[in-house]
Amino acid sequence: MVDVEELRGHLLAAGLAGAVRTTREESLRSYRLFAARDPRALIGLDPASSWGQRELIELMANRCGVSADPGHTSGHDVIDPERTLAALDAYAERLADVARRGAPVLIGTGHPHRLLDFYAVLADALSAAGCAVLTPAQGRCVDITTRFGLRTYNLAYVRGVALVRGADPERPGCETGAHTHSPLPVRTALAAAADAGGPLPELVIGDHGWVCGAGQLGFEAVALADVNDPAPFVGEAEGRVSVVVPLDDGVRADYYLPLTRYVLNRACLSQ
């Protein structure tokens, strides 16, 4: 069991909150791309409102605790651990709700090297609580445009968690899954579930395009997100994403496990 004080200390010591490795330059670049409605930053979201860079900075200051000063243009960004803790509590409430109802869930990540274990533990706990952890479109090909050009990936599930792997077995780095922001994997999975006659998820759990793509299609979604990814936070502000937990999404994989234990305890799903 992890209490609030222990978790706050862990967030700061592990660099999940407080001063994080994500730089202000990275964040501002993403805000500029989002304001220009670049698909690389929208990651499946079609904003209902016009979001300029200043409005995005204000939103991210409110949701994450980054500097609200547009003149602050360099250095490391900051995440307020109190906002992370509050969002983790809200995240746990959504898990508790689907667990009480035994509702089907879909879990997917574009950050498998860092976050797979976090989500896999949630998948195990929700399955034990009677939720169907869905795995539609297993092995389906998904064509994603990357900075290297068009790449074909295969949709796979590891311990109940969806991810994409390179279709070319000779290409290294995809054995445990590829990093992607694309919403195409979740669209592929949801379309396959619908074509099969269901069930459809009552909650989509994940990050990047998994939650933005699902939320845009009207599915309830909860997310983990870094401060250089404004799309999930805009989705939350516009009512398409239920909860977004602000944290650094690029630290060591084992640093996320205390968060998993905390969430499961708050959701009364501890195993």
Rank of each mutant, 00 (worst) to 15 (best):
V2G: 00
V4Q: 08
E6P: 03
A14K: 03
L28R: 14
S30R: 12
S30M: 14
F34K: 00
D38H: 12
D38P: 06
D46M: 01
P47Y: 01
A48N: 00
S50K: 01
Q53R: 13
C64E: 10
C64Y: 01
G65T: 04
S67D: 15
P70R: 04
T84D: 00
A92G: 06
E93T: 08
A96V: 09
A99W: 02
R100M: 08
I107M: 09
H111S: 13
P112V: 15
L116I: 01
V121K: 06
L122E: 06
D124T: 12
A125T: 09
A128Y: 00
A128F: 00
T135G: 14
A137W: 07
G139W: 02
I144G: 02
A156V: 15
V161M: 05
E170R: 15
S182P: 14
R187M: 04
A191K: 08
A193F: 13
D195T: 09
A196S: 15
C212N: 15
C212V: 08
A214D: 14
L224F: 13
L224A: 13
D226L: 04
D226M: 02
A231K: 03
A237S: 04
A237H: 01
V243M: 12
R252Q: 14
Y256S: 11
L257N: 08
L257V: 15
R261N: 11
R266G: 04
C268V: 03
L269G: 04
